[in-house]
Nucleic acid binder design. Sequence first.
DNA 1: CCTACTGTATCGCAACAACGATACACTTCT
DNA 2: AGAAGTGTATCGTTGTTGCGATACAGTAGG
Lengths: 125, 125
Amino acid sequence: MFDDIDPRSPVPLYEQIAARLRVAIASSEYSAGESLPSVRQLATLLRVNPSTVVQAYRDLEREGFVEMRHGAGTYVLDLPAIRRTGERERMTRELVRRLMDDGARLGISAKELIEALKVEAAGGA
Amino acid sequence: MFDDIDPRSPVPLYEQIAARLRVAIASSEYSAGESLPSVRQLATLLRVNPSTVVQAYRDLEREGFVEMRHGAGTYVLDLPAIRRTGERERMTRELVRRLMDDGARLGISAKELIEALKVEAAGGA
DNA sequence: CCTACTGTATCGCAACAACGATACACTTCT
DNA sequence: AGAAGTGTATCGTTGTTGCGATACAGTAGG
């Protein structure tokens, strides 16, 4: 499950770990109420420092995916609960802004991006 | 024209400068063949180090907006030349796909993304 | 040619990010 | 109460980034 963690990648370890867990949770590989591996367990498994795993878990917590309980463990929340929060709109805006930034950088207008997005959403070209 | 350059912003000075110039070029405030302010001129105007302006110009050059001529100045290229490459559509698709990926990861549908994109394009909240 | 302009290259430093080491504090179970 | 698990807090080291200082090199006009 964590085969693709690569210390030499330019994307930080904690981000790789968080990303992997995000999809796992979103795709119900972990279900609500279930506990993630402990910080030390996962750290040992990945041959990584516990602090690095903590950093990943903290990100997931900020994003509303999990809850860390001191002394008890880290538990995944249910997705509906995650989605209810205003956090969701915030993140949508953030994603879209980044898209527009990157687009502008390449001289691609918002109008074009909307068009392309519609096409991709409809199942691609 | 460069009123909004802010040293205290988390986004780097050179990136703010480059961003401002990108839209200026895209909107024909500078036309093809015209020269940008010299590195030192702009640096003095913005009360910034010449190296910082250079960094901005180099980015614009990598992106194909301008050409730096040693000893002569920095000149804007014509946009049609930039846009003619099929590279453009490819990158648009790539950007949009990444957006959808990231969205899916957070449980955000394409429909929502389109909606948010329209809002942001219209000037944001 | 030579002066006054252009961009270029190479440093140095301060701030920050990523990661690790290690000690601390809480919970749960017996 | 105590043991064995859990997350937390605080450091230090290392690499990278943003920015500046300063010397180098090319170009163009008098």
